[in-house]
Design a protein around this nucleic acid. Sequence first.
DNA 1: TTTT
DNA 2: TTTT
Lengths: 169, 169, 169, 169
Amino acid sequence: MAADINSVTIVGRLTRDAELKYTNSGSAVTGMSIAVNRTRKDGDQWVEEANFFDVSLWGRRGESLNQYLQKGTRIAVTGELRQDRWEQDGQKRSRVVIHANNIQLLGGNSPGQGTPGQGFSGNNQRPNQGYQNSGNNSYNNVSNNKPSYENYPSGNAGGSGNFEDDIPF
Amino acid sequence: MAADINSVTIVGRLTRDAELKYTNSGSAVTGMSIAVNRTRKDGDQWVEEANFFDVSLWGRRGESLNQYLQKGTRIAVTGELRQDRWEQDGQKRSRVVIHANNIQLLGGNSPGQGTPGQGFSGNNQRPNQGYQNSGNNSYNNVSNNKPSYENYPSGNAGGSGNFEDDIPF
Amino acid sequence: MAADINSVTIVGRLTRDAELKYTNSGSAVTGMSIAVNRTRKDGDQWVEEANFFDVSLWGRRGESLNQYLQKGTRIAVTGELRQDRWEQDGQKRSRVVIHANNIQLLGGNSPGQGTPGQGFSGNNQRPNQGYQNSGNNSYNNVSNNKPSYENYPSGNAGGSGNFEDDIPF
Amino acid sequence: MAADINSVTIVGRLTRDAELKYTNSGSAVTGMSIAVNRTRKDGDQWVEEANFFDVSLWGRRGESLNQYLQKGTRIAVTGELRQDRWEQDGQKRSRVVIHANNIQLLGGNSPGQGTPGQGFSGNNQRPNQGYQNSGNNSYNNVSNNKPSYENYPSGNAGGSGNFEDDIPF
DNA sequence: TTTT
DNA sequence: TTTT
C-alpha cells in the first residue's frame, strides 16, 4: 500500500570518476562508487574498514556535477535505497543502489571548498576512457554517447531543465 | 580518515519471519528481509514496486523483538549501510545489508499497535523450521542453536544485557 | 556556498488534527504537531518521554492527505529541518519546523492500514472549528479559506497538480 | 508506546566555537550552533538562505572533539531531534535541539582533512571568553568549570571512557 | 527467494 | 498547548 519511507544519507569518497551515461529514452544517469569508512574495535585497537556502495544520480544535476565528481572527491549523498534488477545469462541478479536525490561536494579533489568553475579548467582534459564499464553494470540500454537532443521531443534529457536540476552546487 | 556519516531509515514489511542466530563467539544476530514499496508513474498510471533489502540486528534487542518480527509485520528501521563480504567457491561475494540500530514495530501482523505480549500466545507455537537457512546466507559460523552461556565467559550474548538492548518496545 | 545536506525522518502521532491553509499567493500548506516518544532510563526504570515538533507539508499532497491527518494518527515523516522566522511585537522570533517532503500514514486513527477512502465516511462529519488557530502561528498571510482558483493564474495551489503531489497514499 | 524512530543528518558550519560544559552530575555536554544553507529560487534567481540549529553532543566524544569544533568548521551531524524544556520567569519555554550521536569533521577551519593534532597548536591560544553564554542557554546546572573527578565516583564524566566515546575522529 |  |  503506497510509498514507504526510504531515506539514506552517507558521506564518503568516490573510488573512481563518475560516469555520465544516457538511457535509450534520453535520460541522463550518473553512476558512482563511494567508499564509506567506519571504525571498529579489533581487540583494543581501532581499525578502519571501508564499505563500498553504488550511487546513481538521474537527470540534469548529474550532468552539472559530473565534472567535479572525480576519484577521491568527498561527497555527501541523500537519497533512497533501490534495488536494481537485471538478467545475466538467464540468471536473475540484483544489487542495492543508492538513488541520490541530492549530492553535496565536500572537498577532497573537488572544488567543494573553492569556487566552482574556477581553476579547474584542466580537469576534463584527461579523457574518460570508460574502462569502468566492465563489471556489473546493470543499466539497460545505457550508452556513453550524448544523444542529439533533436531525437527527444520532450527535451527533458538535456534541455532547458526543470526546477530540481538547476540547483547550484 | 575516521568514521563517515552513514544513516538509513526505512519503513516496510517483513517478507518472512526473522531468524535469530548466534555466531561462534556467542553474539546474537537477527536477520530479516524487508519489502519497501515505492510508487512510480508508468505512463499516466501509478504502479507499485517492491524493493527488497536485508536487515540485521545484533545483540539482545533482537532476542527480545524476535518473537514479534513475523512475516508481514510492518517495521521502521534506523541504522547504517554495511557491506557483507564472504567467499563462495573461491569467489569473493558481497551484499549490502542494513545494520539496524533500532527497530520499531508498527503493526501489521505484529503487536505494534496493541499491547505486546497480549493476545499473541499462539505465535510461537508454530515451529520455526529454519528452512530459510538455504540460500545466500553470508554470516560466518552462525548457528541456530542457542549456545549454553557457560561457554561464553563474557556473557554478552544472552546475559544480563547492556543499556541499549534493554530498551522496551 | 550551495545547499547543505539536511535530512530528517521521524515517526510519531499527531497531537491534533492537521490544519490546511492557503498563503496569499495561493500555496496550500498543511500544518501539524507531532508527538515523538523516546524511552530513557530513570534510575533502573524505563520511562517514556514525549517530544513535540511542528511539521509543515506544502502543496497538493497536503490537500490529499489532510482528511486522514487527524489527532492520534501515527505517521512517518521525511523532510528537512527549517527555521521559521517572523516578527512579533517588534521582536524577532523563530522556531524549528520539519519541512516534510513525504508523509506516510501508519495507522492509529487513520486508514493507514486499511483501504483509504473506505469505511471512513464519518471522519469529516466532525466540523473543523479551526480553534487551533490561536497560539504561535507563524505563517504570514495564511488563511483557512480556500481561494477561488480564478484568482491565482498560475493555478498551482489546487489545480491540475504536478508530479510529486499526485503520489497515492 | 515505546521509542519512535527519530533520525536527523545535516551538514553545516559552526557559527561560533563549541562550548564544553559539565552538568552538576558531571556529564560533559558540548553545545554548538550550526548554519545549514539551502538554496531557493527567488523569481528566476537562486538565493542562499541560512538556517541555524542548536546541536548538543554528550559525553567524552565532545571532550575529544571540542578543540576542533571552532567557528567556521564544517561538520556533518547525525542524531535525533529533541525538545529542550525549561522555565524562565515562570514561563515555560522550549527549543528544538539536535542531540548528536556522531559528528564528523569535514574541513573548513578544522583539521578534518589533515592530520588531527598536527599544525594546530595555535588554535586554542585564543581565550574562550564564554561570552556565548548570554542568550537562551537552557541547560540546567551547567558550568564551564571542569569538575575535579574525585567528586564523581562513577567517573563517567571524563574518566576512562566507554566504547562509543573512544571512536577516533 | 519475497511483504501488504 | 499536546499523541498512544
